[in-house]
């Protein structure tokens, strides 16, 4: 039996934003559809929309309630949901990572939990490029996925109060890159010099949802 994808949900988020959600759990399909819908909104703009924010399984649209009524915006959204969703052709990035040691204090533990050596973990982790699933949580913080089932681990039990910008994080079948100092419950497996947040640059981040990322041992 084929499981049909969930119907997109169009939901008001307060009186100045609407969220379009393509699934209630994170998977490849919902994420691709969210990124695709954000791309559709770039080519088929909705008058009155002042910000489009793609996320893991949803897209936030902000509008000015003094100018637009929510019914009108929702109508325009539904028109565009009937279209075949675009696939955004993202840029490709190579990201060098220093794995283990002080740069990645959880590497050995992660490999141990997966019952493989650290070397084998790095090889499997870097084997195929990942997609940038979304930016979120903190400035320039990106989620990349998905790893195969053999590389899926839950988060740590304890949250680290602060890990430095550039930390490469691993959990839930994903690798994330911290672009600022943040608290995290993810496993810290390495560190990269790749900086994804520069407030002086326009745009201030380099990685976009839909881009492809190849991790390499630095």
């Amino acid at each position: 039996m084929q499981i049909l994808p969930e119907r997109p949900m169009v939901q008001a988020l307060g009186d100045s934003a609407i969220l379009v959600r393509f699934g209630s759990r994170l998977d490849e399909n919902a994420n691709r559809r969210a990124i695709g819908f954000a791309a559709t909104l770039e080519s088929e703009e909705i008058a009155g929309i002042i910000e489009v924010v793609p996320s893991l399984v949803s897209v936030l649209l902000r509008y000015d309630p003094l100018i637009s009524r929510h019914q009108d915006i929702e109508g325009e959204i539904r028109l565009r949901l009937h279209d075949a969703l675009e696939e955004r052709a993202g840029a490709a990035h190579g990201i060098g990572v220093r794995f283990g040691g002080e740069a990645g204090p959880d590497l050995e533990e992660v490999a141990g939990l997966l019952k493989i050596s650290a070397e084998k973990f790095m090889a499997q982790h870097n084997a195929v490029p990942l997609r940038v699933l979304a930016t979120g949580f903190a400035p320039g913080f990106v989620y990349c996925g998905f790893h195969p089932d053999a590389l899926v681990l839950p988060r740590r039990d304890k949250v680290r109060a602060l890990v430095p910008a550039g930390s490469v994080l691993f959990a839930a079948g994903q690798t994330a890159i911290a672009a600022t100092d943040i608290p995290t419950g993810w496993h810290v497996i390495g560190h990269t010099d790749f900086s994804n947040f520069d407030p002086a640059a326009e745009p201030p981040t380099r990685l976009r949802a839909g881009d492809s990322v190849s991790f390499e041992v630095a």
Binding site: G14, R62, G136
Partner: peptide
């Protein structure tokens, strides 16, 4: 615990221990 979605100022979130929190202007993006 749900998959992360964008949040907006004024959102009334219920934390894991049942504490309601209203998001301010410096809220997390998601």
């Amino acid at each position: 615990s749900l998959v992360s979605d964008p949040v907006v100022v004024g959102d009334i979130q219920i934390l894991g221990d049942g504490t309601p929190i209203v998001l301010g202007r410096d809220h997390q993006p998601t």
